[in-house]
């Protein structure tokens, strides 16, 4: 999960803000889980429904492959590998902070103020808002597809590749989390623009399901250098699958995911702070 950055000018002087954020996040999450569990039947139904429904996503790809052998030069197991990694990472981020898009609503109806009155970081509270375990459905489905892909796909399992896979999932989740935080922060200025965030999160997850060769080169450049979604799964996956990347970047870039994710988190953290500061000076 994302932690509110430490130190800096506007100084929230709570000692150990990262640990404090994690703690507050867990406290709020627990309350939401208990709330959902007070409607147990409803929870079971929607959790299952969520799992089944996200499977339709992958079914679309399977249907495409009922007409063709390969898409953009990738076989079904290879596309499934992309799908599984993208979906798992996105699912994790969605599970952890999927309610960031409600921030605009909270600003509008004034309930953000009640969060700011508590002695714990606001970001942690907003991220944990409406925590829904049913979102685990997407993660499970992503992992299942990934498992199937790993069984069918032809990867040369060197030590490096074995290590790269879990790192990729975590890095991907971190990049999506950063997008969620940045999107949330953006709503301090444009509360109604929550949709833009969807184009990067849901849109990004859809994009990354397909081989990069399918897309126009400028689009691929955009998601490599501007919003670095390519680091979620494309670059490491291409390496694992032994395929060249369409931009012809140097090989070490495939391993740059972790630092890129860190930079993303730091930038989104700064944006968040700027958002909070703006809220506190405008109150709207």
């Amino acid at each position: 999960m994302e932690a509110e950055p430490r130190g800096g000018a506007a100084g929230e002087r709570t000692p150990g803000t990262v640990a404090e954020s994690v703690r507050a996040y867990r406290l709020v999450v627990r309350m939401w889980m208990r709330s959902t569990m007070s409607y147990r039947a409803s929870f079971v139904m929607t959790a299952f429904g969520n799992f089944a429904a996200t499977a339709l996503d992958f079914l679309t790809i399977v249907l495409m492959f009922s007409h063709v052998e390969a898409l953009g030069g990738f076989s079904l197991p290879e596309v499934a590998f992309l799908y599984g990694t993208a979906s798992t990472s996105f699912g994790l981020a969605d599970l952890l902070m999927g309610s960031m898009d409600r921030l605009g609503e909270r600003v509008r109806d004034g309930t953000l103020d009640t969060l700011m009155l508590r002695p714990v970081p606001v970001l942690a509270q907003v991220a944990a808002d409406r925590f829904a375990l049913r979102r685990l459905g997407r993660v499970v489905q992503g992992l299942l597809v990934l498992g199937w892909a790993l069984w069918r796909v032809d990867v040369h399992w060197t030590v490096l590749n074995v290590a790269l896979l879990p790192v990729t999932l975590v890095v991907g989740a971190a990049i999506f989390c950063a997008v969620y935080v940045a999107g949330g922060a953006f709503q301090f200025w444009a509360g109604d623009a929550a949709q833009v965030q969807n184009s990067v999160t849901y849109g990004g997850a859809t994009l990354l399901q397909y081989p990069p060769g399918v897309f126009a080169r400028d689009l691929v450049r955009g998601v490599t250098f501007v919003v670095p979604l390519a680091f979620v799964n494309w670059l490491p996956a291409l390496r694992m699958l032994g395929r060249p990347d369409p931009l012809g970047l140097p090989g070490w870039v495939d391993f740059a995911g972790a630092p890129v994710a860190l930079v993303c988190c730091a930038l989104s953290g700064l944006l968040w702070r700027a958002g909070v500061r703006s809220y506190r000076s405008t109150g709207s």
Partner: peptide, 14 residues
């Protein structure tokens, strides 16, 4: 059903 958000989300995807 009391978890409205879940039902809505499933209905979207379907």
């Amino acid at each position: 059903l009391l978890d409205g958000a879940g039902v809505v989300q499933v209905s979207w995807i379907v």
